[in-house]
């Protein structure tokens, strides 16, 4: 299958501060791809690079085969872009903004936009600046739907939205993506909403990628174990087996992709005397926090 977005060995610094090094991922045509991670892990940086609003220090990023820093107008027309915080031209009202954008996109469809707008309790001459955050998100979404772009790039669609609007947003997106086989690139720091929505995802940490796999696989394979240790001091480290851990007095919780038997063997090799080891049930959110850490 053809890749709509290819990210190769992407490396970026802000001054001397490393954002990430050698980031790699591809987004297949027709797939929904999520870039997840806590705030400050470089999600928006990636989006900016992808849209040509930042020149990476090293590496490449291709959108429809073009270097993302120099996108042609034709390619830009194929990409719908949601800026973090649903930023739009807030000095316009619903009608004005639709009229404005329609001239730029040959495939513009105003029906889905006005359908969506009809559900909002706003008047046609109400400026976007005087709308609620949720309403603004719907305007931005409506414009994206009307643009009918092949690739949607959504930077933190969930920002500032309560659960209802987040749901609504995704419902529309999902329907849109399925019926028209669009490619969607989405970033978020809230994973549970995206369960069953994403085809692929990359979870980022400060300076590195934590994992890259479909969410279902992540949910399936990622485990949480707890056990007790004796009073002697035990130092845990993250490695191939232990993806993350928490230690409160002599109770230890570890997160891993490995089965319980392998964990026992691992602890044995490290000469950690454990007792009462058991696997604990996890929601997707728990798993996400588990892998990204609480801090």
């Amino acid at each position: 299958m053809e890749n709509v977005v290819e990210v190769k060995n992407l490396t970026h610094y802000y001054g001397k501060k490393l954002v990430y090094e050698n980031l790699n991922f591809n987004i297949k045509r027709g797939s929904i791809f999520g870039l997840l991670g806590k705030n400050g892990t470089g999600k928006t940086t990636t989006i900016n690079i992808l849209n040509g609003f930042l020149k990476p220090k090293a590496g490449h990023c291709y959108v429809f085969g073009e270097d993302s820093y120099n996108l042609s107008p034709e390619t830009k027309a194929k990409v719908g872009f949601l800026i973090e915080g649903h930023i739009q031209y807030s000095f316009m009202n619903i009608k004005q903004i639709e009229k404005f954008y329609s001239a730029f996109y040959p495939k513009w469809k105003k029906e889905p936009y006005y359908e969506l707008m009809a559900k909002l309790k706003v008047t046609e001459d109400q400026k976007i600046s005087r709308m609620s955050c949720g309403q603004r998100s719907q305007v931005a979404l409506g414009l994206l739907l009307a643009q009918d772009s092949e690739l949607l790039i959504l930077d933190d669609y969930s920002m500032g939205l309560d659960a209802g609007y987040r749901r609504l947003f995704l419902d529309y997106l999902e329907e849109y993506a399925k019926s028209e086989s669009k490619t969607i690139f989405i970033t978020s720091h809230i994973i549970q909403d995206l369960e069953g929505f994403l085809d692929d995802c990359v979870i980022m940490d400060y300076n590195s990628v934590l994992l890259s796999m479909p969410i279902s696989e992540f949910k399936e394979r990622f485990r949480k174990y707890s056990f007790n240790v004796n009073g002697d001091k035990i130092e845990m480290h993250k490695d191939n087996v232990v993806k993350n851990f928490e230690q409160i007095k002599n109770k230890i919780v570890i997160y891993s992709f490995d089965e319980i038997e392998q964990i026992k063997r691992y602890l044995g090799q490290k000469q950690i005397h454990f007792s009462e080891i058991k696997e604990m049930p996890m929601t997707l959110e728990d798993a996400f926090i588990g892998i990204t850490g609480k801090y």
Partner: peptide, 18 residues
């Protein structure tokens, strides 16, 4: 000024023109 509020200029530069 409205263009740099919230870096809104990105919207403008994303329009399908050079």
């Amino acid at each position: 000024f409205p263009e740099i509020q919230d870096k809104r200029l990105k919207l403008h530069l994303h329009l399908p023109m050079r």
